[in-house]
Nucleic acid binder design. Structure first.
Lengths: 111, 111
DNA sequence: ATTATTTATTGCAATATTACGATATGCAGA
DNA sequence: TCTGCATATCGTAATATTGCAATAAATAAT
């Protein structure tokens, strides 16, 4: 039904799924790439950089902000976005904890 | 329009977005968790483990298989699924390459 | 051969996501 | 104040995703 049965899954599972949403759309990956490259913080000349309309970018930024991976500070009439270091580390750890579970210590192969 | 403008983004960005889809739904995370835990390969007693209907599980398995992060081998009337080690490492690297870009070497803080 | 078991596929309903035009909001400068 | 910029929000259309009942397909067991 397009509706996720959140209650069936663990906190960890739901949280990782949420975090993964920061990367599950190329536009959001592109925004993060751009933020990483332009070390300093930037605003919506992402509209120039990516070929998407301004409301679309704004929507992706809002999602990323909701996930917490970026933060924005008002700077006059502009808004400066950048990576949120704390949340970045948190998400990185969540992924690493998953990735580190395989290969398992004495993983006899399977199929 | 619910349609992603793939052509606007780089190969890297599209590939990471694809890989992230393995983790962007808690059911898929749960499946992966279960595969990691039950070191050996298993089949669809995921239906028992998670509380989802059999066709729903089957669909998630198909997506994970399409991404390549799991593989299945026919074993009589059952199908044994397990992690695909090569693809796992590949995806892990894709994420690490992103994560390693921050904090940047001399990252003067921003906002 | 018939029946049970396991998994995949089909068809469909409900909801979510992506994208954008139009519009609102908020600040800066003339 | 008025005008122009930057960004957010609203409304809406197109498409995607999630979930399941019903059914098919393929093997196993009787």
């Amino acid at each position: 039904m397009g509706v996720t049965k959140t209650n069936l899954f663990s906190e960890t599972q739901n949280e990782l799924a949420l975090a993964a949403k920061a990367f599950d759309h190329p536009a959001r990956v592109a925004i993060i790439h751009y933020l990483l490259k332009s070390n300093a913080c930037i605003n919506g000349d992402l509209v120039q950089e990516l070929g998407l309309a301004q409301p679309t970018i704004s929507q992706h930024l809002r999602e990323l902000k909701a996930i917490g991976i970026i933060q924005g500070t008002i700077e006059g009439s502009r808004i400066s976005y950048c990576i949120n270091p704390v949340r970045w580390a948190e998400i990185r750890n969540q992924f690493n904890q998953l990735f580190d579970q395989y290969p398992a210590p004495l993983s006899g192969d399977c199929c």
